[in-house]
Design a protein around this nucleic acid. Structure first.
Lengths: 115, 115
DNA sequence: CGGGGTGTTCGATGAAAACCATACACTCGC
DNA sequence: GCGAGTGTATGGTTTTCATCGAACACCCCG
């Protein structure tokens, strides 16, 4: 019982996740309406699942703020995290999120850098 | 020149509009990520174009705040306003906005009240 | 078991945004 | 023109949120 995972040996407090289905539209929009988080999502979208650690993103904020942003994205059902040794790797919840908010993800990704 | 409109006789400062095409995704998301504005958009979606005056919406804020919210929606290319006598009537820019952010509007409208 | 690497938590700070009350501007009907 | 009705602008308060620095927790490697 409660035997720890051998492959991803980690018994750190597992990150709390919210399934997209339990996320209000407003929360999802608010989560994506931030430049830093938008960058995270986009960079994540261009990478393989579980291939990026939290610290591997190119954003102009400190560790603390970064950690906070990931918590927000988790709470909005946009990303999933898993502990892998000392690191925490990420995955974009493409399908689940798409099921809840069809088109939204594609919208912010295709997103024309601006204008 | 500059003959005033006869039908909607008004020479008040015309409200400034931003076309959806000139709106950054972030701005659009931020505009919709507010409970009051979301209510405005939804109520507006359930009414005929130009049928609703600013004051005719059921939101728990004062006139000043309301006016501000409409300005934000205008700046995000979501609503269009026109002066009609002493009143200012509204219209949801369905098609134009849909062209710029396909699916987004439908998403916030279908929006399951919550969860 | 000690230390480097990684990420979270805490407390505080600063900026942005929502809000209100008041005062003003404009249109219309009398 | 006055006065009611409608919306905007201004100034100031409150709340919210992004951010940082520092302290802490955890994992691994030697």
């Amino acid at each position: 019982m409660a035997q720890r995972d051998r492959t991803t040996g980690s018994h750190r407090a597992a990150p709390e996740h919210t399934h997209p289905d339990d996320v209000p539209v407003q929360t999802a929009l608010a989560a994506l309406a931030d430049p830093v988080r938008l960058t995270l999502v986009r960079e994540l979208a261009g990478s393989d699942d579980w291939s990026r650690t939290c610290g591997s993103f190119d954003v102009p904020v400190g560790k603390a703020a970064l950690s906070h942003h990931f918590a927000v994205l988790r709470g909005a059902g946009i990303v999933e995290q898993r502990d892998e040794g000392p690191k925490r790797v990420n995955r974009l919840r493409r399908d689940e999120f798409e099921g809840r908010f069809p088109g939204l993800l594609g919208l912010v990704l295709r997103a024309d850098g601006q204008a």
